[in-house]
Design a protein around this nucleic acid. Sequence first.
DNA 1: AACATGACGGTAG
DNA 2: TCTACCGCCATGT
Length: 113
Amino acid sequence: VRSTEDKSTASFPSQVYALVRRVPPGRVITYGAIARLLGDPRKAREVGWAMAATPAETPPIPAHRVINYRGDVSGGPGTEHAARRKKLAAEGVTFLDDGRVDLERYLWLPPLA
DNA sequence: AACATGACGGTAG
DNA sequence: TCTACCGCCATGT
């Protein structure tokens, strides 16, 4: 039973959303970090897919705090790309001259405990 | 079932 | 530092 998965009954996307919901305002996390935290570093791409399919719910999932490992806000027009940057800025996140986020400064990871 | 695409990551040039 | 290519996994056609 549960041959392919016994770590949790929750689907991968659900686990992604659960983790993203824990990211505090003014902080960000990367796709790769999420994948790694869920146990499979190579599923980073799947994390991206999951975020693209982020369901509208309450409280809303802070998908705008998820960026790629370079500190760039992914996605083009049509995926609320500009809106995400705006939200980040509203939370106090400053962008570098290249338009990227300083991960060393804003990257958030869940407490070990 | 096969092919092409993608909110990614890492390495090589 | 920037661009290009490859690898991974799931989706949509």
